[in-house]
């Protein structure tokens, strides 16, 4: 029985609602028979009456309400319909939830789910990757699961964490990515995973880009190169030790992310490696991101706006030849 990435998210929420009376889910169009724009909560409102609640189109108030409920001992999960709309709730997530523990000594255990990243034809307001922006601010954990197994266990972990978690789930993976079964064990939160060992080049990535990178590594294997792939899993905290250890083995670094290019996760990875592991590098580190324009609508433009397999392959070959 295969499980998709989306089903893993639904199953995690089912388990959370079943096992923990403090959990409720709050978001737009998530209740009733409809079950969410992507069906991540389908069937849950019927199964758990009063605990999967539709909200008005009020992203700020959705998160504000979750903060209040968390302060009263609940473990709310907020579903943003699209990550892009969470910009309306930045104030609540970052200025309110993100500062609360530092200011008052009282943490705010909310989980905000962001259906993130690009899919064909989704355009500038339904495609964004906001992990870099959230990571810039103190006080929040930012998760970017790339596999079905991580989608499941990390959402369960997110709700268990006493602090605010921004959980970036990638829409491109919802239906396409499948696993044999839900995992029994989880990999620790905050630890990156070596997806495949190698000796010639480290590619650090996360979320949907992992699968592009795996394709690249397969292709380069045919050319005799062994690529080590690091999946960050959480981008904040960033598991710098695992990245540095990998670069120590390979001497070369490529960081790949789907977000906009100015600053962000890939810039942080390269900044840390060059400042703390400059001596480990045999070639200049390189990063690949989306282009610095709004995300285009037409698939012809979109497929060149985000990093694609060909771009990654070209860059990887360049670094390997240095």
């Amino acid at each position: 029985m295969a499980v998709t990435y989306l089903e893993a998210i639904r199953e995690a929420q089912t388990k959370l609602l079943r096992d923990d009376p403090r959990v409720f889910i709050y978001g737009q169009d998530i209740a009733g028979k409809f079950g969410g724009a992507f069906k991540a909560t389908k069937g849950l409102a019927e199964k758990f009456p009063g605990r999967v609640l539709n909200t008005p189109i009020s992203e700020d108030a959705m998160v504000g309400t979750a903060i209040g409920a968390a302060l009263e001992g609940m473990r709310p999960i907020v579903e943003m319909q699209f990550a892009d709309f969470s910009s309306i709730a930045l104030n609540q997530i970052l200025n309110n939830a993100g500062t609360h523990y530092y200011r008052t000594n009282v943490p705010v255990p909310i989980t905000v789910r962001l259906p993130s990243g690009g899919t064909k034809g989704s355009g500038p307001f339904h495609s964004q990757s906001m992990e870099g922006l959230y990571s810039h601010y103190p006080g929040v954990v930012v998760m970017t699961p790339a596999t079905v197994e991580d989608a499941y266990t990390m959402l369960i972990d997110a709700v268990a964490i006493d602090d605010p978690v921004v959980y970036c789930e990638h829409k491109y993976l919802y239906y396409h990515l499948k696993a044999e079964a839900l995992p029994k064990d989880s990999f620790p939160v905050g630890k990156a995973r070596i997806v495949r060992p190698g000796r010639d080049l480290t590619i650090v990535t996360y979320s949907a880009m992992l699968h592009e990178v795996i394709g690249v590594a397969n292709e380069l294997q045919g050319e005799g190169f062994e690529i080590e792939i690091v999946d960050l899993r959480t981008v904040k905290p960033l598991d710098t030790a695992t990245v540095l250890a990998s670069v120590a083995r390979t001497g070369r670094l490529l960081a790949v992310g789907e977000a906009f290019p100015w600053g962000g996760v890939t810039a942080e990875v390269i900044s840390r490696v060059t400042t703390e592991g400059f001596h480990l590098l045999d070639a200049a580190p390189v990063r690949i991101n989306a282009k610095d324009t709004p995300i285009p609508y037409h698939p012809n433009l979109w497929s060149e706006h985000r990093p694609n397999r060909q771009m990654i392959l070209t860059k990887a070959r360049q670094i390997l030849q240095e």
Binding site: D60, A69, L71, N96
Partner: peptide, 15 residues
Amino acid sequence: AMIPVMVGKLMAKRM
């Protein structure tokens, strides 16, 4: 910003 936080406190008490 504190209006919905209050709403959440009250909803949670009811829950």
